[in-house]
């Protein structure tokens, strides 16, 4: 039994490694209730949630910078949400994430035609402008950055999160 367990464990590691080296993880559908799931799933950790869209010019400029930030800060959970109107374009979305170095972060795509309701769940005051970044501290305090974020601000926030820990 012990041998069998070890074999299975090795295989799980093997598959996990192959997955990490191979194709990007699929985009996850962002639907009703997903936001609460994101908050719960990352509770107690510093989280950066970035809302963007494939047709948004400033987003295209910011995304690679965010990719570098994610690479430099493995201690921060980076989550992206493509928040364009549906029909959204998964292939274009994934392609831009890949190019920006964000293949392996947790990536969502809006998957509900009723975008007003999705946005309301996230922030009742949000009218859909993108890019938009929400910084969630370990104790759940949310700081919202409207428009393109200054990387220096993200660095500062990240450092504060680490120093608190």
């Amino acid at each position: 039994m012990r041998f069998r367990f070890a074999g299975i464990a090795s295989l799980v590691v093997l598959i996990a490694s192959a997955a990490a080296l191979g194709a990007s993880p699929a985009l996850k559908p962002f639907e009703r209730g997903t936001w609460q799931g994101v908050l719960k799933g990352h509770a107690g950790r510093p989280v950066l949630v970035h809302f963007w869209g494939v047709t948004c010019g400033p987003c295209k400029v910011e995304l690679p910078l965010l990719g570098q930030f994610a690479k430099d800060h493995p201690d921060v959970d980076v989550v992206t949400v493509s928040a364009d109107l549906v029909p959204n374009l998964p292939a274009a979305t994934q392609s831009m994430l890949d190019k920006a170095g964000l293949s392996s972060t947790e990536n969502f795509i809006f998957n509900d035609g009723f975008v007003e309701r999705l946005r309301f769940e996230i922030d009742p005051a949000w009218q859909g402008d993108i890019p938009r970044t929400m910084l969630i501290s370990r104790d759940g305090i949310i700081t919202t950055i409207e428009g393109s974020a200054e990387m220096s601000d993200l660095e500062k926030w990240s450092a504060q999160q680490l120093s608190k820990h």
Partner: peptide
Amino acid sequence: ALGQMRAPHASEA
């Protein structure tokens, strides 16, 4: 399953 999640999207229409 993941592949299926990519394809159909809830529509505005």
